[in-house]
Amino acid sequence: MMNQEALAWVIRTRDPQFDDWDAFTIWLEGDPTHAGAYDALMAADADLEAIIPPEPVAMPVAANDVEPRRRPWRWVGGGAVAAALVAAISIGTLNRADIYTVTTQPGETRNIALGDGTKIELNGDTSLRLDRKDARFAALDKGEAAFTVRHDGANPFRVTVGDAVFEDAGTVFNIVHAGGATRIGVSEGKVIYNPQAEAIALPAGRGLANDEQGLRVMDVTPTAVASWRQGSLIYANAPVTQVGEDIARSLGITVRFTPQAGVSRFTGTIRLDRNPARFFAGAAPLMGLSAVQQGDAWLLKEGDAPQN
């Protein structure tokens, strides 16, 4: 049933005249599995030329008959096309060997070089899907990744994050997807957010966040974008809870906050250090907090008392 619903939306949203994006968004948000099914069917769409046979040669039409209007196969719902598309997903895309996942553990980083010249750098606790048949596709399922993209105007690089799409225009950018929130910062070139919907252009020095506060665009410092690659974290009035998430991802440790400390904000630069005790000895006072080790975790609390 879900595949049939997803198929119907694929067919509708492929139509250049489709404009019912509100209903489509409601359907996507109605079930966490909807976005995955839709994305899988959209990916399979590119392979269907090899699955669906060519259109048969048209039969002669009597002079007094009106030849039926022909539409491209991809706009036609139901019947053999629908069956072929669902079958392609069932036996192909969802399990095919060319879709693969690259993961990192908390505190681990990894570099990936794609065949088109694009470079992806994964921070800790990250999961990214790639396609061996399509070097212009990536899906960030969780974590943080920096992208240095070779521009190709005829074949733009796209990153899907949940039900959002980021499309490059010759770009260096960083995406974080964690805790139901998504953040992107652009340091070079330009990224288009959801080119088929909002189509928000993000040039260098601009960022976008989509979290519990909604969708918003803001200025960012280009040198702060993906600064974790140079061993530092740079912030401008960021919630310290966000800082804590970034520390945990980069260093592979658990960071907690007391309620009072968790509502504070931070502006500044924090140097990363693989030694947690040494790191917090310098980082906690910068945030106006103190750090206490609790087993394998670190608790940040208000005040600048020395660590225990």
Rank of each mutant, 00 (worst) to 15 (best):
M1I: 13
Q4D: 07
R12I: 01
D20W: 12
D20C: 10
T25A: 15
G30Q: 14
D31R: 14
T33D: 13
A35V: 13
A40C: 13
A43H: 01
A44Y: 00
D45N: 12
A50Y: 06
I51R: 15
P56M: 07
P56G: 10
V57E: 15
V61R: 05
V61S: 06
A63E: 14
A63G: 10
V66F: 13
W73I: 10
R74Y: 10
G77D: 14
G77A: 14
L85I: 00
V86P: 02
T93Y: 02
L94S: 13
N95R: 13
R96L: 03
T101S: 12
T101Y: 11
T103K: 06
Q105R: 12
P106D: 06
G107L: 04
G107S: 05
D116N: 15
G117A: 11
G124P: 04
G124I: 05
D125K: 11
D125S: 13
R132S: 15
K133Y: 08
D141R: 08
G143Y: 04
A145Q: 01
A146Y: 01
F147A: 01
F147D: 00
V149I: 13
H151V: 03
R158L: 00
R158W: 00
V159K: 01
T160H: 11
V161P: 07
G162L: 10
G162T: 12
G162W: 08
F166W: 05
D168C: 03
F173G: 00
A178E: 14
A181T: 12
A181E: 15
R183E: 07
I184T: 10
S187H: 00
K190Q: 04
I192T: 12
Y193S: 02
P195V: 05
P195E: 04
A199Q: 11
P203E: 08
A204M: 02
G205R: 00
R206H: 10
D211Q: 11
D211N: 15
Q213I: 00
L215K: 15
L215M: 13
L215P: 12
V217R: 07
M218Q: 14
P222E: 00
A224R: 03
A224V: 00
G231I: 07
I234F: 06
A236T: 11
N237K: 07
V240K: 03
V240S: 01
Q242L: 15
Q242T: 11
G244H: 06
D246S: 08
D246E: 14
D246L: 07
I247N: 02
R249F: 09
S250V: 05
G252E: 11
T258D: 05
P259D: 02
Q260S: 04
G262N: 05
T267M: 01
G268A: 02
R274F: 02
R278M: 06
R278C: 04
A284P: 04
P285L: 02
M287F: 00
D296N: 15
K301L: 04
E302Q: 09
N308P: 15
